[in-house]
Design a protein around this nucleic acid. Structure first.
Lengths: 213, 213
DNA sequence: ATCCTCACGGTTGTATGCAATCGTCCGTGA
DNA sequence: TCACGGACGATTGCATACAACCGTGAGGAT
């Protein structure tokens, strides 16, 4: 693996974990020094992340960790629903029962720590990512990944409630069981509800925050 | 504008115009010499185009103009339909009548040259791009642009028939008129038919080509 | 006091050179 | 004749140096 990718992975994690919160200014030189590299690979990494919508980059301007406003979020979630519906459609049509069995096994036990660990966001995203991968499409996973990258920072607020974590787990298993029965309509319906519920929650907490200042 | 962007724009056009057909190998040095630049900006441009799915790029491997197979095309068109439906939804909901009037005026006259000019593909894409822009979303246009980039090479075969060009023009105006009446359901229906018709046509000619060798 | 000008520091854009790696081709052996 | 191995060439990965540009702040004019 190239240095460029290593740096991109590290920065991406730091952004997603909110170590670098939205609005943070980033310079090529600063990162280069920090990682003991030259500007060249760092530069490539930053361009990569900008393309993933994690950074904002205009020519001859600073890099900045991007944020999402309420307006975009509506679009992003609608896209997400549309794309994940397509995932369900493909899975049912291709009857990929084996992969689904593995997924169900992986999710058969409820999450261990429900003490508001933000890492459970990653677990939820891993589920959806695995589902996308099981669709067998080469187009859907990267598109969904891009959407979720942009939503991630917002979703970090989404799992502070242990009750909510459990509900998410139950919804995931319900979706998988519907898929195992090849009941595409039910699976899609459950998935829609699951995603929009997340939307409502994030939207509420976000508007509360935006109303403050 | 930076050299990187200039080069990216030129190469993008050459790929979309099939001057660089799918499968063509590209080297940084070759392009650098051709444009009288160093490898650095050329390199950035190639990375950019790879991110737009116009080039394939693996670390330490050649760059290659990407092609689309039948399998991916199904996905790409389904995505396109889903996204453009969303565009219609947004336009109707926001009642952006002004922009639509401009669009209709622009398309009020049938295309001048119907002699199989491949540039009419660009006209069709310009229509859909304008429609996406009229949605007011900051999310939809780039996503659709990415999809269309990947489909473009295939669609070049799509407009050799003058009758088809006229039909496309008629469908566009019909969609716009439905939107002006805020009839979202009709507009979406027409749009779906319009896109899937293109799909059928391209799919048929592509499978014919793939069957040959 | 406010606005404008201009120069400076900092940051990105580009060029060049070297290192690392991969594909290819030739030669050798079975 | 075919398979395997190694060396060469070509290409990308990375480092460094310089150029161009932009925002920012000080200083002066109004």
């Amino acid at each position: 693996m190239t240095r460029t990718q290593q740096v991109a992975d590290e920065i991406r994690l730091e952004i997603l974990r909110n170590v670098l919160p939205p609005g943070t200014r980033i310079t090529e030189e600063g990162l280069a020094e920090r990682y003991g590299l030259s500007r060249t690979p760092v530069r490539e990494a930053l361009r990569l992340l900008a393309r993933e919508s994690l950074l904002i980059h205009a020519p001859r301007a600073y890099y900045e960790v991007s944020s999402v406003n309420l307006d975009e979020m509506d679009d992003l979630y609608t896209m997400r629903v549309a794309l994940e519906e397509r995932v369900v459609e493909r899975i049912v049509r291709s009857g990929a029962a084996i992969d689904l069995g593995q997924l169900l096994a992986f999710w058969s036990s409820p999450p261990a720590s429900t003490d508001g660990d933000v890492h459970l966001v990653f677990a939820d995203e891993l589920f959806h990512e695995s589902l996308a991968a099981a669709s067998g499409s080469t187009v859907l996973p990267p598109m969904l990944r891009n959407l979720n990258n942009r939503l991630h920072a917002l979703r970090m607020r989404d799992f502070i409630d242990p009750a909510r974590v459990l509900r998410t787990y139950e919804q995931h298993t319900a979706i998988l069981q519907a898929l195992l029965k090849s009941d595409g309509r039910l699976a899609a319906s459950l998935l829609r509800a699951h995603i929009w519920q997340s939307y409502d929650f994030v939207c509420a907490s976000l508007s509360a925050v935006e109303a403050q200042p």
